[in-house]
C-alpha cells in the first residue's frame, strides 16, 4: 500500500494518472494510427486518390505505419505501470456491468456510472481496438504479400480490411470526439496528472 493513498492530498491537488512510458505509448500509437487513416483515405476515396496519385508510395507509407502500429504497445509491456493498466483494462467488475447498462439506456447520472481507473466503455474500446488492429494487420499482410495466400483469400482479406477500416474510422471518431469533450482527460494523457475533483467525478472507484 503506497503512502500516497494513506495521506489525503489537499483539495485542488493534482494526482498521478499516467507514467511517461504510457503517455508515449498513446502518443506514438495515435500518430501511427493517424498516418494509417490518412493514407487509407487517399487510397480509398476516389477524389483523393486522383488528387494525390502515386499509389505505390502511399501504399508503402500505409504498409509501414500499419506494420509499426502494434510496436508501441509491445514496447510498453516493458513498463510496470503500463502492464498494471492493462490488467485494469482486462478485468471487469460488477460496477462495470452497471456502467454498461446505464450507457445503453443513455442514463448519464453520476451514480449510475461507477468506474475504476478506467470505465467500462474505455475497457471495451481498448480490447476491441487492439483486436481490430491485429485483424487489420493480418488482412493487410495477406494483401501485401500476394504470394503467401491464394487469390481467393486475398479478395476475402480485402473485403474484411475495407469494412473493418470503415468501422474503425467511425469508432475512432467517437474516441476522439469524447476526448475533445473532456479537457481534463486529455490533460491526463498530456501531462500524466489530473485534478482530484475530476478523478472523483469520472472515476469514483479509482484509488490512485
Amino acid at each position: 500500500m503506497s503512502l500516497r493513498t494513506d495521506t489525503p492530498a489537499p483539495p485542488g491537488a493534482r494526482i498521478h494518472r499516467f507514467s511517461r512510458a504510457e503517455r508515449w505509448v498513446h502518443r506514438t500509437t495515435a500518430v501511427l494510427m493517424g498516418v494509417c487513416v490518412l493514407t487509407a483515405a487517399v487510397l480509398y476515396i476516389p477524389q483523393l486518390a486522383i488528387m494525390v496519385g502515386r499509389r505505390e508510395l502511399v501504399v508503402r507509407v500505409h504498409e509501414c505505419a500499419g506494420l509499426a502500429l502494434p510496436a508501441p504497445v509491445l514496447l510498453g509491456l516493458a513498463s510496470r505501470a503500463f502492464r498494471a493498466d492493462l490488467r485494469f483494462l482486462n478485468r471487469f467488475g460488477p460496477h462495470d456491468r452497471t456502467w454498461l447498462r446505464a450507457a445503453l439506456v443513455r442514463d448519464k447520472r453520476r451514480s449510475s456510472r461507477p468506474a475504476g481507473k478506467f470505465n467500462a466503455g474505455q475497457k471495451v474500446y481498448a480490447a476491441w481496438i487492439a483486436g481490430a488492429t491485429l485483424v487489420m494487420l493480418g488482412t493487410g499482410l495477406m494483401m501485401w504479400f500476394t504470394h503467401l495466400t491464394p487469390l481467393m483469400w486475398r479478395t476475402s482479406a480485402t473485403f474484411v480490411h475495407d469494412w473493418l477500416a470503415l468501422t474503425i474510422g467511425v469508432v475512432l471518431a467517437g474516441h476522439i470526439g469524447m476526448a475533445l469533450g473532456d479537457p481534463e482527460a486529455r490533460r491526463g494523457l498530456r501531462t500524466g496528472m489530473v485534478s482530484r475533483e475530476w478523478a472523483k467525478r469520472e472515476h469514483p472507484l479509482w484509488r490512485p
Binding site: 478485468r91 471487469f92 467488475g93 481507473k117 475497457k123 471495451v124 480490447a127 472507484l205
Partner: peptide, 28 residues
C-alpha cells in the same frame, strides 16, 4: 476497491480482444 477489481473482476477484456480476432478470421 480498484485492487479488488483487479483480483476479483472477470477477464472480459481478453475475451473481447480474442472475440474481435475470431470475428475477423470468420469474416475472411
Amino acid at each position: 476497491s480498484e485492487q479488488s477489481e483487479e483480483r476479483d473482476g472477470r477477464p472480459l477484456g481478453r475475451r473481447v480482444f480474442l472475440g474481435t480476432l475470431g470475428l475477423g478470421a470468420l469474416g475472411v
